[in-house]
């Protein structure tokens, strides 16, 4: 399972990376916004995308749209981990086809639950 973590704050990327490792996902890679993340997704065989929303350059919602618009990537599961908690924004992310949505600050348990749920649904 190869996972791409996209967040403009390196500490947050480290936190998510470490949490994922604790959950047994050792193969992770990082990008600091959509502009650097999208080429990685297009050239590498990623199985899962964890992205922040508010980033300079290309935001997470634009990255999500780009992923869904790309024939090769359109089925990639996407988990959004963001501080944006407005109803409109969550609804927008859902409409754009996000698979899970976590608001910061979050716990290790929440991350585990959401990832489990996403894969349950994909496999089920």
């Amino acid at each position: 399972m190869k996972i791409l973590i996209v967040d403009d704050f390196s500490t947050m990327r480290r936190i998510i990376k470490n949490l994922l490792r604790d959950l047994g996902f050792n193969n992770t890679d990082e990008a600091d916004d959509g502009n650097t993340g999208l080429p990685k997704l297009q050239s590498g065989n990623y199985d899962f995308l964890v992205t922040d929303w508010n980033m300079p350059g290309m935001t997470g919602i634009d990255l999500l749209r780009a992923v869904r618009a790309d024939d090769k990537l359109k089925d990639l599961p996407v988990l959004m981990v963001t501080a944006e908690a407005k109803k409109e924004q969550i609804v927008m992310a859902a409409q754009e086809g996000v698979n899970g949505y976590i608001v910061k600050p979050f716990t290790a348990q929440t991350l585990k639950e959401k990832i489990d749920k996403i894969f349950e649904r994909i496999e089920g």
Partner: peptide, 16 residues
């Protein structure tokens, strides 16, 4: 260690 790790999330939020 996990607790220490999670405590670092302030950096992202306070930064914003």
């Amino acid at each position: 260690f996990t607790e220490v790790l999670m405590a670092q999330d302030f950096q992202d939020l306070t930064g914003q």
